Every structure is written in structure tokens, then in C-alpha cells.
Simulated assay, not measured.
Amino acid sequence: MATDKEGINADLLRQDRSKATLKPISACCDIPELGDAKPLSECSNPKLPGPCKDVQCAFEKSGFLTDNLTLKKEVYKKHLRQWAKNHDGWSDAVEKAISDCVDKDLRQYLDIPCKAYDVFTCTGIAMLKKCPDAAWKC
């Protein structure tokens, strides 16, 4: 067994897929980046604090919001469907996200109202539920 300079067993750091895990299930699906590079870059330097501001920024710069509380549903749907065309195996997950998160008006109940957070969190959960086998890591 290999150990690093701090004595940590390097073999333990490698994921053993034959063993059970209690990781958050979200860690098991390798969902590719959903955002476009330019808006993400514009909202990353500096990274905005909190769970809403960075997602809100990325949604605003991507043109997904009319205002802080209103999603441009057709624009977001078009983005997700185009993303699915560029990522094999993700069409079912995208359609689940659209039906669960765009066509319905759900709240994720962050302490402050944040439409971008609500939609993005819901999108991630919906896509996790339809994670393609090839992207499943656990």
C-alpha cells in the first residue's frame, strides 16, 4: 500500500466501486457542466457568496431570467435541449428536468426567494433521477 508524506493510505483515496457508500447520491452522477463558459466566467471572478448570487448571476448572464423571480421558460428549455444534443445519453434527463422544473413552478425553499436557485437545484435533482448508466460513478 502506498502512503503519502502525511501517512495517508493512497489506496483509500481511490474509490472502490465494489463497496457500499453513504455519499450524497448527487456525488454518484457525473453531470457535465450545464452552463456556458462565458457567463460562468463572468460570474466567477470573484465568485459571488451564498447559494443564490452565483447561480442568479449565471442565469441572468445566460438570458434565462426576465427579472429576479421570473424564468424565461422557453429560453431555458432551448438551452437544455441544445445541451442534450451535445451530450449523448442525457435527453431523458433533460426532458425530466423540463417537465419537473420548468413546466412546474417549484420552490426549493432557500431562506430568500431565488428563482435561479429553485430552477437549478430542481434541474440537478431531476437529471440525477435519470442519470445515464455511463455517467453513474457509484
Results as ranks from 00 to 15, higher is better:
Ser41Ile: 09
Glu42Tyr: 00
Cys43Glu: 09
Ser44Met: 07
Ser44Val: 00
Ser44Ile: 02
Ser44Ala: 08
Asn45Gln: 06
Lys47Gly: 13
Lys47Cys: 14
Lys47Arg: 14
Lys47Glu: 15
Leu48Pro: 04
Leu48Thr: 06
Leu48Gly: 09
Leu48His: 02
Pro49Val: 02
Pro49Trp: 02
Gly50Lys: 07
Gly50Arg: 08
Gly50Tyr: 06
Gly50Asn: 09
Gly50Gln: 11
Pro51Phe: 05
Pro51Arg: 05
Cys52Gln: 06
Lys53Thr: 09
Lys53Gly: 03
Asp54Cys: 11
Asp54Leu: 15
Asp54Gln: 15
Asp54Arg: 14
Asp54Asn: 15
Asp54Phe: 11
Val55Asn: 03
Val55Phe: 08
Cys57Arg: 01
Cys57Gln: 05
Ala58Asp: 08
Ala58Arg: 11
Ala58Tyr: 08
Ala58Trp: 06
Phe59Gly: 04
Phe59Met: 12
Glu60Lys: 12
Lys61Ser: 15
Ser62Asp: 11
Ser62His: 14
Ser62Cys: 13
Gly63Pro: 11
Phe64Lys: 04
Phe64Gln: 08
Thr66Trp: 02
Thr66Ala: 07
Thr66Gln: 12
Thr66Pro: 03
Asn68Leu: 13
Asn68Cys: 09
Asn68Ala: 15
Asn68Val: 13
Leu69Ala: 04
Leu69Met: 07
Thr70Ala: 00
Thr70Phe: 00
Leu71Met: 13
Leu71Glu: 11
Leu71Tyr: 06
Leu71Asp: 14
Leu71Cys: 09
Lys72Thr: 03
Lys72Leu: 08
Lys72Tyr: 03
Lys73Glu: 15
Lys73Val: 12
Glu74Ala: 14
Glu74Ser: 14
Glu74Ile: 03
Glu74Met: 09
Val75Phe: 09
Val75Leu: 06
Tyr76His: 14
Tyr76Trp: 14
Tyr76Met: 15
Tyr76Asp: 12
Tyr76Phe: 15
Lys77Ala: 04
Lys77His: 03
Lys77Met: 03
Lys78Asp: 10
Lys78Tyr: 03
His79Ala: 13
His79Tyr: 12
Leu80Gly: 13
Leu80Val: 06
Leu80Asp: 04
Leu80Met: 09
Leu80Glu: 06
Leu80Thr: 06
Leu80Ile: 03
Leu80Ser: 12
Arg81Trp: 08
Arg81Ile: 13
Gln82His: 01
Gln82Ala: 02
Gln82Glu: 12
Gln82Arg: 01
Gln82Tyr: 00
Gln82Trp: 00
Gln82Val: 04
Trp83Phe: 13
Trp83Lys: 04
Trp83Glu: 08
Ala84Glu: 11
Ala84Asp: 08
Lys85Trp: 02
Lys85Ile: 06
Asn86Ile: 06
His87Arg: 05
His87Gln: 10
His87Ser: 05
Asp88Arg: 05
Asp88Thr: 03
Asp88Met: 05
Gly89Thr: 12
Gly89Phe: 05
Gly89Arg: 05
Trp90Asn: 09
Trp90Lys: 10
Trp90Ser: 13
Ser91Val: 01
Ser91Asp: 10
Asp92Gln: 05
Asp92Phe: 00
Ala93Ser: 07
Val94Ala: 14
Val94Ser: 10
Val94Leu: 11
Val94Thr: 07
Lys96Ala: 14
Lys96Thr: 13
Lys96Cys: 08
Lys96Phe: 01
Ala97Glu: 15
Ser99Phe: 00
Ser99Asn: 12
Ser99Gln: 07
Ser99Ile: 00
Ser99Cys: 00
Ser99Ala: 09
Ser99Thr: 11
Asp100Gly: 07
Asp100Leu: 09
Asp100Pro: 07
Asp100Lys: 11
